[in-house]
Computed example of a mutant assay.
Amino acid sequence: MGTLVTLDLPADSPVADLPWVITIGSLGDEEDWEPVVCGPYERAHALALAQAVVADEELMAVVEPLLPRVDAEAIRDEIELARAGVEAPAEAEDDDYEPRRVRPGRAPTEAEVRAGWARIAARLAPVE
């Protein structure tokens, strides 16, 4: 069984409405290959697809939001926010981290994923 890593969001988080990507890579050091990045997807689709892929294989999937930014200055602002949020790493104990086990559900169909892409495109399209 593989590993799925994602943000633990509150139910009403606006981040959930962003487009999401899946990065899938090797779980161990035995394999040496470049990770595969797929997306964008709606969050529910990204999670379901990632779960389906790692359910029976020793892979790691990271599901994270894309942050659409329209220019370099907006990207720099996002970098500064990220840097400002970094604190000195605490000495983490292995006991401090408890992974949540999830059962893979049904992966979305191609038609559902394509409909999700259309919804993402509509949200990202400029309003005229």
Rank of each mutant, 00 (worst) to 15 (best):
E34N: 11
D95R: 13
V63Y: 00
E42F: 01
G39C: 01
V15K: 10
G105Y: 03
E87N: 11
V62G: 06
S26M: 14
R76C: 05
V21C: 10
W20Y: 06
P65W: 02
P35D: 07
L49P: 00
L47C: 04
W117G: 06
A72S: 14
A115I: 03
D77S: 11
A52C: 04
E110W: 13
W117L: 11
P40R: 02
I120M: 05
A107W: 08
R76S: 13
P104S: 03
D17Y: 09
V102E: 07
D71F: 06
E42K: 03
L66N: 02
A48V: 02
T23V: 15
V21F: 08
I120D: 01
R100K: 15
P14M: 14
L124F: 03
T23K: 09
E31P: 14
E73A: 07
R106S: 04
A118N: 08
E64K: 02
E34I: 08
G25A: 08
L49G: 00
Y41A: 00
E73S: 15
A55R: 03
S13F: 13
A125P: 05
M60R: 05
E58F: 09
A88R: 09
L59C: 01
T109V: 04
G25M: 09
A52N: 02
D12W: 15
P89K: 07
E30A: 14
G25I: 05
E42N: 10
V102L: 10
S13Q: 15
E91W: 05
